[in-house]
């Protein structure tokens, strides 16, 4: 039997389905739109994105939120393709997080 991908959860035991409504945040919608633009430009495709998510460590996959996994999957792909510098991306992300404000996008 082949190794199980972390995304391949069909049939695994699990608890009750969470029924709480979680409204989508604005940045999550904007991030999806950005992903759609990257796809439309042919820079990434959906199958690559799924593969990037599957390459996360199990802890990362389980620990990240649904939209967190999307951000990390897109980031990993853009770095892998040489479109973004991974070190610079992390530097900027930490700077934004430290500043704690959405105005600091530089």
């Amino acid at each position: 039997m082949s190794e199980r991908l972390i995304s391949d959860v069909g049939g695994l035991p699990s608890g009750p389905v969470p029924r709480e409504e979680v409204p989508q945040l604005y940045w999550e919608k904007a991030m999806i739109a950005m992903f759609n633009v990257l796809i439309a430009k042919g820079l990434v495709n959906l199958d690559e994105f799924r593969r990037a998510v599957e390459q996360m460590t199990p802890d990362h996959y389980a620990g990240a939120s649904f939209y967190g996994r999307r951000v990390d999957g897109v980031a990993a792909l853009l770095v892998e393709k040489g479109i973004l510098d991974g070190v610079e991306l992390e530097r900027r992300a930490l700077a934004i997080l430290t500043a704690g404000t959405r105005d600091h996008v530089a």
């Binding site: 082949s2 049939g11 799924r50």
Partner: peptide, 12 residues
Amino acid sequence: DLGKPGHVRTPL
């Protein structure tokens, strides 16, 4: 069960 590593869309 092709035993193919990497991304596939055929769940176990």
